[in-house]
């Protein structure tokens, strides 16, 4: 008998760890992986509630999230490759062409 709140707390923690990773890491790919971590945290909370309320749609939502995450990962990594070709670096602080 695990209280639901434990699952939810775990999900929140994973989410926040993802944000911290986004803020702290300097490598583009690692930042991208932190984003994936965030998405997984959210997925866990969806599944938790789907289980609690006997909603299948919650799980289908997770399914869609996975699909979108996959698409996003593909495109995002392609972008990273393009950036690497242009700037020859993966350090996010060096990629600042957008500054005014």
């Amino acid at each position: 008998m695990i209280p639901l709140s434990w699952y939810l707390l775990l999900s929140a923690t994973l989410f926040c760890l993802g944000i911290v990773g986004f803020l702290v890491r300097r490598n583009l790919i690692t930042i991208f992986m932190s984003i994936e971590l965030m998405l997984n945290g959210v997925n866990l909370s969806f599944v938790t509630f789907a289980h609690q309320w006997h909603l299948v749609k919650g799980q289908i939502f997770v399914f869609f999230v996975m699909v979108v995450a996959a698409a996003e990962a593909a495109v995002g990594l392609a972008i990273i490759i393009a950036i690497f070709r242009a700037r020859a670096t993966l350090a996010v602080d060096r990629i600042d062409l957008m500054k005014l």
Binding site: I19, F22, L23, I31, V92, D93, I95, D96, L97, M98, K99, L100
Partner: peptide, 17 residues
């Protein structure tokens, strides 16, 4: 306001957070 647009991804992320 120009200082805000630093082009630095992490500061953008911080402001988002």
């Amino acid at each position: 306001l120009q200082k805000w647009q630093s082009g630095n991804l992490r500061s953008y992320a911080a402001w988002l957070a």
